[in-house]
Every structure is written in C-alpha cells, then in structure tokens.
C-alpha cells in the first residue's frame, strides 16, 4: 500500500494534498498496489479524495486533531501505516509535514526524502531527486530501508482529477494524554488567499518599492491574476510587509509557476528561495541588477510606471479568457 497524508484546513482539503495523492497514485501504479489516504481531524466530503487517486480513505475524526500536534499526528499516521502495510508514505512538504514526516520516519525506521521533486526511480534502488544547497543544486537520494517516507515539494507536478470516488472508513486511535502535550492558546490563520508555499503565481516586491505605502500597485497586480504576495528580506525586516511573505535563504523557499520580481536586486540569498520558479519576470530600473541573469523575461524601467501597465494587460487577458 502507498499511504498519503491528506492534510485538511478547517475541514476542507488543500490543493497540495490533492497533488500528493496524485503523486502517490503514480507510485502505486508503478508498484502494482493501491493508495490509502489518511485524514486527521474533522473534515467534510473525504470521498472526493478518490478523484485524485485515493482508492481508500481512513478518516480519524478526532476533534483533538483539528490543530497540528506533531506527536499525535505521527502516532496516528504510523499506526495506520503499520496496519495497512505501507511501503511508502507521502506528505506534501509544508510546515505541517516538517513537524510530522520525520517523526513518522524515525518511528518506523524509514528513510526520508524531504523536499522531493521527482517520482522515485526504481531501476537501481529507490532514488528520488530533491533540491539542495537552497536551490543551487539537486541531489539524487537513494532510500535503503524497507519502508520509505517522501515529502513532496508543493507545485512539483500539478493536479489531475478524475470521477473516481474512494471508499471511506472511519477509525479511532488510542491516544495517551502525553500525545497532546502542546497546548494551542490561539490560532491566527490568514484566510482567503493561497498560502505562499502553494501559490502558482507570486508577485514579489523589494526595496525598490521605497515604502509600504506603495504596495497598492503590487496588490492590484496580484489581484489581477489571483497571485499571492511575497517580498525580499529587507522589506520584511523593515516591517513594510509581514515576515511570512519573506522569501529567500532565510525566508520561505517557493516554486511557483510564475514569479514576478519588482524592485528586487536579485541577491544570491534571495534567489535561493525562488530560483526553482518555472518562469521569472524581472522588473527593475537598473540594467546591471543581477536578477536579470536569473530571469526569463525582463522589463527595464521604473516599477511605478510598468506595474500598472502590466496589471492592465493581465486584466485584458483575463477578460478575453472569460469572453
């Protein structure tokens, strides 16, 4: 069996979970086996996970699992993995997975590939590609243990959907009191926008924007194509933008389809977080800005003039699409 953790957020599933199930189903097809998705906490409509390739869903409908508790999550997933005889366990590599996947791996003595970007190559061992040195290179990692854990980098494959439905079973796990040692005092979730780590389209601003009061033009640009906002480190350090928007070596590492960099010089530490983007558009007034070397499309000039024009062009494109 290939097991996959289908993370939910306030009861519904995230795109990255669908992608992880798709990925699991490809591994299952190669290995001639099936996919079991594990859902933790209260969630609606778990049968739709079948649309993405789950043959079966095991739902642990325990309200204590609505918030992340690494210990309890790991116990639940490891228990199901053993029960289902899982050969491979798949996660989508986000903050939740970073707290849980290595714990599951340690518990099951399973080798872990964190941040995988390829399907396993089983022609000689079980080799998975991942990004290393903050995006400056790739490594091919061979997993030698019988059970394997893979944490897939979001946006590596995209999502395919069918009409299939999964058979859903509910189950409970015998938790001990010390499985819930972390007490959640308050949660503050940003709603309504795609989290940066999963965003396909990202608009990012740097010090070239001069101040937080100028972010309106980037917000308009992002809104015109449904993109998520990001920023360079000095922008977050100066509190022009919240620090979860900061990308780069010391911030988030992202892999969107499109990254639009406005007024960002393209320092190596910034590029480390974004250089796996499929296409990069650079808007900068300095022809020597290093970002142009890492970009696919460049516009030289003043961001304050260029950005509104690009926003208009996107709006026109969107309108034509819907016509």
């Amino acid at each position: 069996m290939i097991l996959v953790f289908a993370e939910q957020n306030n009861g519904s599933f995230k795109k990255a979970s669908f992608e992880a199930i798709n990925y699991a189903s490809k591994i299952a097809a190669n290995a001639g086996t099936q996919v079991c998705a594990v859902v933790l906490g209260e969630a609606n409509d778990t049968a739709i996970l079948g649309n993405y390739g789950a043959n079966k869903v095991i739902h642990i409908q325990d309200a204590r699992l609505n918030n992340l508790e690494a210990k309890a999550y790991s116990k639940a997933i490891s228990t199901i993995a053993s029960q289902e005889n899982a050969q491979v366990i798949i996660f989508s590599n986000n903050n939740t997975a970073k707290a849980v996947a290595p714990r599951v791996a340690a518990r099951l003595k399973a080798g872990l590939v964190a941040g995988a970007i390829s399907l396993p190559d089983t022609s000689n061992g079980f080799v998975v590609k991942k990004s290393v040195f903050s995006g400056k290179a790739f490594a091919f990692v061979n997993v030698k243990s019988a059970t394997k854990v893979i944490s897939l980098t979001p946006n590596s494959f995209g999502v395919e959907k069918t009409d299939a439905v999964a058979e859903v079973a509910t189950q409970s796990i015998d938790f001990g009191a010390n499985d819930f040692a972390v007490k959640v005092e308050s949660v503050n979730k940003i709603t309504g926008i795609v989290p940066l780590g999963e965003a396909e389209l990202v608009v990012s601003g740097g010090r070239g924007l001069k101040g937080p009061e100028n972010w309106g033009i980037l917000e308009d640009l992002a809104a015109s194509i449904g993109a998520t906002l990001a920023c360079s480190r000095p922008v977050a350090d100066s509190h022009w933008r919240p620090h979860h928007e900061h990308v780069g070596q010391t911030g988030g590492t992202i892999r969107p389809n499109l990254y639009i960099a406005v007024g960002i010089s393209g320092a190596i530490q910034h590029l480390a977080g974004v250089n796996s983007s499929k296409a990069i558009v650079v808007i900068n007034k300095d022809p020597e800005a290093p970002f142009f070397k890492a970009g696919d499309y460049g516009v030289l000039g003043d961001a304050f003039e260029i950005v509104p024009k690009l926003t208009e062009a996107f709006k026109k494109y969107k309108a034509a699409q819907h016509a």
Partner: peptide, 22 residues
C-alpha cells in the same frame, strides 16, 4: 544509514532573459 546521496546535478542554466519594454 537509511538514505545515501547517489549523485548531484546542477540546474539547467537559463538561456538568457528576454527583454521587453514598457
């Protein structure tokens, strides 16, 4: 050791930026 690195690879170099004007 449950995993080992078999080899490394460098990313494909960008073919060069396509410049457009405003």
């Amino acid at each position: 050791e449950l995993t080992s690195i078999v080899s490394y690879e460098m990313p494909v170099q960008k073919t060069g930026v396509k410049m457009l004007n405003i």
